[in-house]
Design a binder for these strands. Sequence first.
DNA 1: GATACCACGTA
DNA 2: CGTACGTGGTATCC
Length: 909
Amino acid sequence: MSVAAPTDLPSDTPRLLLIDGHSMAYRAFFALPVDKFATSTGQPTNAVFGFTSMLANLLRDEAPTHVAVAFDVGRTTFRTEQYEAYKGTRDVTPEPFRGQVPIIKQLLETLHIPAIEKPHFEADDILATLAAQARAQGMQVLICTGDRDAFQLVNDDVTVLYPVKGVSELARMTPDAVEAKYGVRPERYPDLAALVGETSDNLPGIPGVGPKTAAKWIGQYDGLDGVVAHAGDVPGKAGEALRENLEQVQLNRRLNALVADLDLPLGPEDLAARPWDRQELHTLLDELEFRTLRDRLFAMLPDEGEESSAAVAASALELAVLAEGELGAWLAGRSTGLLGLDVRGAGRPAAGDAWGVAIADAAGQAAVFDLAEIAPADERALADWLADAAAPKVVHASKEAWHALHGRGLPLDGVTFDTELAAYLCQPDRRAYDLSDLAIGYLRRELGAGDAQGEGQGAFDLELDRTDEGRRAAVRASAVRDLADVLTAELGDRGATALLSDLELPLVDVLARLEQAGIAIDVDYLTGLEKSFDAQVQDAAAEAYAVIGREVNLGSPKQLQEVLFDQLGMPKTKRIKTGYTTDAAALTDLFARTQHPFLEHLLAHRDAIRLRQTVEGLLRSVGADGRIHTTFQQTIAATGRLSSADPNLQNIPMRTDAGRQIRRAFVVGADYETLLTADYSQIEMRIMAHLSGDEGLIEAFRSGEDLHSYVGSRVFGVPTDEVTAAQRSKIKAMSYGLAYGLSAYGLSQQLSIEVGEASALMQDYFSRFGGVREYLTGVVDQARATGYTATILGRRRYLPDLVSDNRIRREAAERMALNAPIQGSAADLIKLAMLGVDRELRRRGLASRMLLQVHDELVLEVAAGERTEVEELVREQMGHAGDGLPDGPLSVPLDVSVGVGGSWHDAGH
DNA sequence: GATACCACGTA
DNA sequence: CGTACGTGGTATCC
């Protein structure tokens, strides 16, 4: 593309891209986690990565014919000479950043992009000078900088790209954009900045004067000179403040004026983009260990082998121009093949809407529709196709598409592949699966700007639908279609084909209906609860303040540390990054030692504020239908669990009595008879018994005796009915701890016993249940050898850190390896159970429905007269979820307990 | 305004 | 020095 072959470009106006190197690199440094971006030799690379990524995007999207990057030199400039405190508040440059600037310069050299510096001046002055010269030569100029002073350079030929979020999102500051944001034309922006001040430059403004007031004055008096001349006329407090700070304001204005007539070694004509030094670039990228970035950079070049074929495939995308009523025929002509579907819209449960749809086939033929404008015949054809279970479709994040389409009354069926789910099964530890990232990673294809936010935020304008949004939707649909092939192969390699088609994919529809149903809320009750918790907060705070004789922010760990350790002189607790912990365990321990009443009130305050916060969050989430519709996220937890968000209904309090009251607010809906909860007892321990094959543990479950008493009797060598409550709870803690990789030290902490005793307890346990120890060591060894763990359904978790040289990381990975098969197999089982329950409810034509899943528990809403049958089928499906596993049935029974009641609280056990 | 950290709820 | 999450507060950075 442009940089390598400027002649390819539309050859009208030359376009100069100017970048403030230091400013953008610094932004990148703070936008990306430094610990996640380092070479194996420890060289931090987050700033280099962020800067290069941004540069690659700019080269692609802006296709400049000329490029340069300006850098600051040192800290002293003509501005610091005029005003010693200029930029004086800035901290010392962080060490991990400092070393990255030379690397960026090296990289620019391989790209043959000039890096320009001028002692005693700032990068912005260089940009100002070059922009002025370029404009005089008839060029269009783009300036990329995080320094707002550059806004003064904006005009019809000069646009500033200002980072709004990290370095990935740039605001296009044209004259109109500057005026819309600040209320002044660009040339007046420095007047405004002089009045308001600029904290990052340590230039104080006029107290009490913000952009609004400043813009008003500037408009009123025709610029800063006028404001100064008429300072005496400005009324009110602000006017007074202006008069008191006139000198500072004028100084600010002198300092924020950019110098546009520097004598520079290179002029705009010298900045024409040149071919890269590919060899050097490869070498440098090797050193930096940038893999995806290499792909992105070289994907832009023509004739670069594999990359270019992907680029060709993407550009071969052909948007069908369909006349009204032709969609049916278009679809019919493709009825046998898998089609990619992209839905533009909002995918929120019970609040979905879709405004655009793109469909693409394997050959890159695509059709796009604006749902607001679609002709009735085409809408019918589309609706039929979407709802056709026999019309195979691939969608990225199909549950969101389901909700979006549902909002338009368009049922979705026949989704035989979901690229997000497939990528999740292949790489469960990723935290995001943006389509554009997958396209780069698996197809080496750049989808272009505007899709980073993933699902359907983009507007869908008919005027644009053959160009902008419509084309992007088509690009996405086509990428999704092509990804399906690559990911199908990838899933096969990883033994996850059935996991997708038989578990996760069918679950999408089930979850979508759970979310759509939501759970009814007794809002009046919840409001009353909020008041009551609020009163408790006030009381506890007042008492806490009374004890220490002053008011502090009890929610601030920092201020609490002052009170506890400085003012009250209490013994220090466990060290954390920012001092000493004030968590509940530490406070309880401190109270036991000091009996100080402040601690009691503080803990009470913590409890109450937490409960109030939970209630407030729930109240905010209640929909117009009086129900809360959570979102079950299917691609978040690396172990295979679901997670719940907006709001999280998987962490509603249960342990304390006050907390449990919140569960009374979750009630049965008007058209139903009761709520029903069904949960697995000790599912993780049962899975441990199954996976380890330990005869003793298996027998414990088959005997039907209380698990922890049974285990306790073996460990302590006493009859089951003589195991004391204290012994039982120790055993319980240890049993669960084992599944997490608990150490003797950790166990001792939790049980408040000596490490020796904890260690002895574990020894005794393992001497009776040796199969468990063998299993636990074996699972880690195997994972180290294969690189992954696996659940009973073959769900893998890859743990490369098992062979890390870093002990902390390695041991953390070992604990993950212990836990992932257990937690993940439990997740597999309840997902199987959900499919079974759903299938049975529908097969029998029952009106009852599932509402929630909480890891080992299902909550259902039961219709009148269906209670007995629903309970029976739920017990059956959950209890036998482990019967049809690939490697044979579970070797332990699955115990299910069921409760019913008008609220979640009353239906619980 | 965005990110980091703390604290804490669940399984 | 126990796994997996999501949320909301304060503090802190630009």
